[in-house]
Design a protein around this nucleic acid. Structure first.
Lengths: 234, 234
DNA sequence: ACAAAAGTGTTCCTTCTACACCCATGA
DNA sequence: TCATGGGTGTAGAAGGAACACTTTTGT
């Protein structure tokens, strides 16, 4: 029944897994064990299997590359990349997914023995295999936008987190400092963004901070304002 | 070189072409000439061809179904749909594109003799072939969001348009009335949204309105505020 | 003259911005 | 006691929401 006159191809699912780690926006990369691009860094991914839908494939790849189940992080479809020639092995179209993860215990190497590790986005940008530089650029852009309009910044945090940690997420992802007082007010006055637990957490130094958990709100209305990117008037 | 152990499939590109027409949000649908779903309405689309990238395929389909070149409207990738079983002919993954078009001269029938026509979104929702109801729902949601944060409302208008026409785009896509005075102020004070031509346009009745063209700005900052969708507090 | 759509101003309120000090803890 | 990060209030500015009347044309 399959119509032979149309192009047949393979479908890959690639993951841009972002986290905030050591005050930097980092991405999970693997070192490619085989050609093409042997030894180069790339985003984790793999081919779609029979009977699997796209988000199942993304979740499976995620599990294979990290110790995480898809429940403990945010996973959304990013964009699909299908230029002919993007994969030297033949016609491969890739559906990219964006994951926002808390600062994980170091991911184990993937089951296929490729070594997976975190790398700062700025240090791998421009060096990835295939068209993964483009995917990563789009992923970072999407993540930046998500912080403006949604409550997804909390997806970068552990189950319990302080407002300072949440603010650091914004500062690291946007690459700009924010006013702590204004940020606190905004976050606390946005119904459903974060919920107070009664706990506090002490650190090496400084006053212990109150711990919060994610609220139920999905959207930030009005959005979290991001200062103009230096191409703004007035 | 093609690795046979991985799933091979066909890739479709489907188009959700939206316009504002007769005070309604309408979508271009075709009546399917062949099985599966013969006689049912569906979004226009087709299979990816050899050597073609995704946006080329989308532009080609657009040209085949309407008289438009891709230049005179906005075309963006929407989302990719790949559930197994979404197409009874076999494994087909579809990359959906969203187009925002001005009120076009009635589109010609597609070259493959399927009749293409505009239909109000509300009247076809829930009746389309394949998973096109889902695609259309996502397309409308994306379009609604685009109006909030970008200047793309003008993509629904002709080259020259009045502020009233632009406001009607918002009202029709969002399904709510807007205050004309506040809308005028917002639009005129947002640098680069619209540019004044010195022309005016008379209609059957009423005072002639000044004509504008699209400006160069891509983003609306701050965004155009959309009243809460009735699941808001306070 | 009248019907129809365009255009215009002000007040109030909310939210953003900028800014400086005290608090609670560990070393 | 000091170093460190947490937490708080206020005044000014900008933008959003609500609201009614005058202007310009065709008939």
């Amino acid at each position: 029944m399959s119509d032979r006159k149309h192009l047949h191809l393979r479908l890959a699912v690639d993951l841009a897994i972002l986290t905030v780690r050591e005050e930097l926006l980092q991405v999970l990369v693997i070192e490619r064990a085989h050609d093409p691009y042997q030894g180069k860094l790339a985003l984790p991914g793999g081919f779609l299997r029979d009977g699997e839908n796209l988000s199942e494939a993304a979740t499976r790849e995620l599990r294979e590359e990290t110790d995480l189940d898809g429940n403990s992080l945010h996973l959304e479809q990013l964009k699909t990349y299908g230029d002919p020639g993007r994969d030297p092995r033949g016609r491969v179209v890739s559906v990219a997914y964006l994951a926002l993860a808390p600062d994980l215990p170091i991911p184990r190497a993937g089951s296929d023995a490729r070594s997976a590790h975190w790398a700062p986005v700025t240090s791998v940008a421009g060096t990835l295999a295939f068209d993964h530089d483009t995917i990563l650029k789009d992923a970072v852009e999407r993540a930046r936008g998500r912080l403006e309009y949604t409550t997804l910044a909390a997806a970068f945090c552990q189950k319990r987190f302080t407002i300072g940690e949440l603010r650091r997420v914004y500062e690291v992802v946007w690459g700009i400092p924010l006013d702590a007082r204004n940020f606190n007010r905004k976050v606390l006055h946005t119904e459903g963004f974060i919920e107070s637990t009664k706990e506090k957490r002490s650190q090496d130094t400084g006053r212990p901070a109150e711990l919060y958990r994610r609220g139920t709100a999905q959207w930030l209305r009005p959005p979290m304002m991001r200062p103009p990117t230096a191409d703004e008037k007035r």
